[in-house]
């Protein structure tokens, strides 16, 4: 009885080139394609932020969703530069390539980049090995984010979360209100009708804004493909040094990685579906080295992208709890 997306079966007489033109030519017919509507909706949201808040900031996590967000922001304000800074909360445990990619993007697109690391966390040497993923995440991510937002007195923080990622995300508004201690009150969200956003805040309060709320993972990938958006190569399959721990493949990205006795990194053809702190991000075995291959592989996959994120699998409702504590 179950049915769903089947990968397209090639038929003998269809003309690939003709269809291809139809998909990616800019609007020539009157109605927009699905991706074009999503893009327009996100651009409108970004402009609403710029027009309504005094000190907006955009979270830049260097992953694919952030890359899409960056691309959308460049489009939203063109020919002006992005009228707000991009904020990277750096736990110091990111993949090295991510940091290099981040700096290259800032250079190339000329945006204002702010990088923040929790100074106490740094001083105390907080790391995922000794302190566990949840404590590490709390100190180096949640608290660091709060520090950065408070220090910048930002009244709106734009993030790349999508509603299809997780069940509590599916419940969140596009303009999501936070009280003075950055907490989300899921039972008391403002009604959000049409595309009329209530952007009003009282002193100390702030807003989280999610312009790509209505995008699915597939939308993100097809958009990256059609727009030619640059991504870190970590998303593409390549031989990488990994160790396997309780079923998860972890890449040994630098010398800080603690190998267990008898453990040795193996070269494996892997890629990442999501990027974060390398000791906490699971790789998948894959040979998908191009975007089309990634998209096709994703269609056939039977696991969700969050499975690669070790911090989410703790318990049901853990994301909601984190958000109530001020996690993005």
């Amino acid at each position: 009885m179950r049915r769903g997306l089947k990968p397209y079966q090639h038929t003998a007489n269809s003309s690939a080139a003709a269809v291809w033109d139809g998909v990616y030519s800019r609007v020539t017919s009157a109605s927009l394609t699905h991706l074009q509507s999503l893009e327009a909706e996100s651009i409108a949201i970004l402009r609403e932020v710029a027009a309504s808040f005094e000190r907006p900031v955009m979270m830049y996590s260097i992953g694919k969703d952030s890359s899409v967000l960056l691309h959308l922001a460049r489009k939203a304000f063109f020919p002006s530069k992005i009228p707000f800074p991009l904020l990277h909360v750096n736990t110091t445990w990111k993949f090295r390539e991510m940091i290099a990619f981040r700096d290259a993007m800032a250079e190339k697109h000329g945006f204002d980049l702010i990088s923040h690391t929790n100074p106490e966390g740094l001083a105390n040497g907080i790391n995922p090995f000794d302190h566990g993923s949840s404590r590490f995440t709390d100190i180096m991510k949640t608290q660091a984010l709060r520090q950065a937002l408070d220090a910048g007195r930002y009244d709106a923080a734009i993030g790349g979360a999508r509603r299809d990622e997780e069940k509590s995300r599916a419940k969140e508004r596009i303009f999501s209100h936070r009280n003075a201690s950055h907490a989300w009150d899921p039972k008391n969200q403002r009604p959000e009708l049409w595309r009329v956003f209530n952007t009003r805040l009282n002193p100390g309060e702030s807003m989280r804004v999610f312009p790509i709320s209505n995008w699915t993972e597939l939308d993100v990938w097809t958009y990256i493909y059609s727009e030619g958006i640059e991504l870190p190569t970590l998303y593409y399959a390549k031989e990488r040094p990994v160790v396997e721990r309780s079923g998860t493949l972890i890449m040994v990205d630098d010398e800080r990685f603690r190998l267990e006795p008898g453990e040795a990194p193996q070269q494996e053809m892997v890629r990442f579906r999501t990027l974060g702190d390398y000791p906490l991000t699971g790789a998948i075995r894959s040979s998908a080295a191009t975007l089309p291959e990634i998209i096709m592989e994703m269609q056939a996959s039977r696991t969700s992208e969050r499975e690669g994120r070790l911090i989410d699998s703790d318990s049901v409702g853990s994301m909601e709890k984190k958000k109530q504590e001020g996690y993005f």
Binding site: P7, Y8, H10, S14, A16, H34, T222
Partner: peptide, 14 residues
Amino acid sequence: PDTDISLWLAQQTD
């Protein structure tokens, strides 16, 4: 663009 995926994407977009 490989033929299969482009057709598949076209189908999605349509």
